[in-house]
Amino acid sequence: MNIALINGSPKPNGSNSGILLSMLEPLIADGNELHPYTPNKRPLTPEEYSELCRMDVLVLAFPLYYDGIPSHLFQLLVTLEGYLKTEREREIYVYALINNGFYEGQQNHIAVEILKNWCARAGVHFGQAIGQGAGEMLGSLDKVPLGRGPLKNLGRAMYSLAESIQSRSAGESLLFSPNFPRFAWKFYSTRSFWHRTARENGLKPKDLRRRM
């Protein structure tokens, strides 16, 4: 099968969507051709849109923005719908790897519905989505094996997604939080992420509350 891996993060480098795709890749590489697309670095060309119409599977990885899909990826979907309507010659299955900044992965459910609605308009099959809460943690968990510790739920969901992709079938969407206490995640995000980043930028933590 030809599988497109579309990194829908707006970050050009170091995205959590990229991390999730790199976890999925070894699980679906056997017997398949994987084709990475990075619209986060430059918009897709007309030739690349046409290529996507010839794929068997599209995997979209993206962060939750405003309870939905980031605008640049949304624009890609709008454009791709047009290409699919005129150029698609085979059945295509769509899968999604979503991560959100809030702790509860359940908050990804509206983005999943938007994607299902897009699939219906574009004439492709919605396969399955998985949604990881507290996605910003992923960057600091690169030493943790998938399926262990805070990534236990993610591992279970990722294997389920890989199985659905391999069999080009539909599966239940799985939206989950990390295996990590919420209070500890909140403390960590404030002290080790927001305040640390502020200091790196020459700001004090109280500056982050600035009103214009």
Binding site: Y66, G68, P70, S71, L77, V78, W194, R209
Partner: peptide, 25 residues
């Protein structure tokens, strides 16, 4: 698809500064 159009989405995405990074449950 049950969402805003790309331009409106873009405007909303760019308004993130209305909120603080900190969380409340």
């Amino acid at each position: 698809y049950g969402s805003y159009s790309p331009f409106v989405l873009n405007v909303l995405n760019r308004s993130l500064s209305y909120m603080l990074p900190y969380f409340v449950t």
